[in-house]
Write a protein that binds this DNA or RNA. Structure first.
Lengths: 121, 121
DNA sequence: AAACCATGACTACATCTGTAATCAGTCTTG
DNA sequence: CAAGACTGATTACAGATGTAGTCATGGTTT
């Protein structure tokens, strides 16, 4: 599975959210902040097709695009990569780190505790 | 703070581990697997200097390099970025995700529970 | 039919990255 | 001092990425 670049990821998000879509529809759903032209979105679509991250089916004279890889899998790979690189693959240091950085509220803690309890059973 | 590329990160790791170091010393400590020549390491060092991620002091006719950003901060930024992009900024889904993917052993769970308990007090 | 519009394919181009080689000094060593 | 060795600076170059523009073709509207 080839690497998906940051910008391409925005396109994947759109299609994971809803698919299949035409190029124009994808462009309409890409976050405003990107400020992309339709041409740019089309380039992204082509590259993602080439990488095998998307599939397309013809619908008349145009294409309908849909993801060819699951968001699940992509997310797993990326978070695994981060974990390995920065925390020696261990989740505990990440949690500790985020807690220190105030990325973890009391409610979060409760929630994670509940999750862990469930996992143990 | 400019983005640090994957390859450059390997150099930062070396210097976070121990610094200051000369270019040659850094090269000697970069993981074998990279198979980098000294020239490559020097390029990385220059680019990191330009990005402001490293600082150097002259030591005779050569430089001693040292990090100009804290590993802490870099790691915080990167993990925050991942969390925001993939999990809406929430840690719980990430933990749940990793658990599902068997990235979480029973021992890990114990450990995190202990950590959370400590955090609450 | 003529003019127009939408679409994918192809082309463009600057910047970033990975991966060096080469060059111009300075230090060392014979 | 001459020949190397070592160092940062400069240059190289291919592939990835961000960000489009252009072109050919086939459908649409008057």
């Amino acid at each position: 599975m080839e690497r998906i670049a940051e910008g391409e990821y925005a396109v994947m998000e759109v299609l994971w959210e809803r698919s299949p879509l035409t190029a124009a529809e994808v462009a309409a759903r890409v976050p405003e902040e990107r400020g992309w032209s339709l041409a740019t979105v089309k380039t992204m679509l082509s590259r993602l097709l080439a990488k095998g991250a998307l599939a397309h089916e013809e619908e008349g004279r145009r294409y309908l695009y849909r993801p060819a890889i699951r968001r699940e899998d992509y997310v797993a790979e990326e978070s695994g990569r981060l974990l390995d690189r920065m925390f020696g693959g261990r989740l505990t240091p990440l949690v500790a780190h985020l807690a220190e950085r105030d990325r973890l509220s009391a409610a979060d803690i409760e929630e994670i505790e509940a999750l862990l309890k469930a996992l143990k059973s």
